[in-house]
């Protein structure tokens, strides 16, 4: 390890201890377990700064935070999968003896042979561990992929196809009483008729040109190509608006983290 690295690590350790002590002194008398609380706040701030240090470059503090995060979360999800799904949900519905063994409440009324299907499929998946019978695990995978495709076909057909089509059934002339009447009553604030018509035209042209862009059976040339180009423009404008909207959401997350650092850790009253 380089000498500079050692000095930096020693410096950060000293700062960490100092922060812990100062925070503990600040919390003393306000909370019972102030030493533990001060450690948790300081450690949270240290991990936040370690992750943010990646903006500068990869470094040992980021590596520490990354490995801690990955290790803890992987272990957490594994134990959640076992204790919540298998022990918490499956065993109480399948076996009284196993329920007693795992000290969970047995639910006899909920027993159903269907619950053995995921058990069998799960066991088949574990066959991957066998060199000779590893191919059996493909059955479980085939089941998952097949049911996913089948179920999602109807789901997406309904939400992404049929509902979108019916939402485009809009009149291009709204509340129409003749051209003369329209121009003599062109008052947006009063009726909003023009705005409604513009909105409907945008929906109609946007959807039609968007579908044309995603039409793969014809070369995008001529009129078809121009419509497709208009479609991609519509998509890009939509993405631009979405980009700005989402970035604002991310900024609020950053503000949340900075608020934590300044208020909870450093004690500023913001």
């Amino acid at each position: 390890m380089k000498k500079t690295t050692l000095i930096i690590m020693a410096g950060v350790t000293v700062l960490f201890l100092l922060s812990w002590i100062i925070k503990a002194l600040a919390l003393e008398g306000m909370q019972e377990d102030y030493i533990k609380k001060a450690f948790l706040v300081t450690f949270s701030a240290f991990l936040t700064l370690s992750i943010l240090s990646f903006l500068y470059r990869d470094n040992p503090f980021y590596k520490f935070a990354e490995h801690l995060f990955v290790g803890v979360s992987a272990a957490f999800w594994m134990s959640m999968g076992f204790w919540s799904t298998i022990v918490g949900n499956l065993i109480p519905r399948l076996s009284q003896n196993l329920s007693v063994f795992f000290k969970v409440h047995y639910i006899p009324g909920d027993f159903n042979f269907r619950f053995y299907i995921p058990v069998i499929l799960g066991l088949l998946l574990l066959m991957r561990l066998s060199r000779n019978y590893g191919w059996i695990s493909r059955w479980s995978l085939a089941f998952i992929v097949g049911t996913t495709a089948g179920l999602n076909f109807i789901r997406y057909l309904r939400s992404d196809f049929i509902k979108q089509i019916s939402a485009t059934f809009v009149p291009l002339l709204v509340d129409w009483q003749g051209t003369g009447h329209f121009f003599s009553n062109l008052d947006l604030s009063a009726s909003g008729q023009l705005v409604m018509m513009l909105a409907n035209w945008t929906i109609f042209l946007g959807v039609m040109s968007g579908i044309i862009y995603f039409f793969f059976s014809k070369e995008h040339t001529g009129m078809f190509g121009r419509a497709s180009r208009f479609g991609i423009w519509v998509l890009m404008i939509t993405f631009g608006a979405s980009f700005g909207y989402t970035v604002m959401g991310r900024i609020s997350l950053l503000v949340g983290r900075i608020t934590f650092l300044f208020r909870d850790w450093l004690g500023f009253n913001i």
């Binding site: 196809f161 089509i165 485009t168 059934f169 809009v170 009149p171 291009l172 002339l173 709204v174 509340d175 129409w176 109609f204 959807v207 039609m208 579908i211 044309i212 995603f214 039409f215 793969f216 059976s217």
Partner: peptide, 28 residues
């Protein structure tokens, strides 16, 4: 499969076109 989906898109365009024309006529 991709071609079949394109048939669905063509169908969608046709239905939208007809429905929008009908909706516009019924407004007038």
């Amino acid at each position: 499969s991709l071609k079949g989906q394109d048939v669905g898109k063509a169908l969608a365009m046709l239905v939208i076109l007809i429905a929008v024309i009908l909706a516009t006529i019924s407004e007038i």
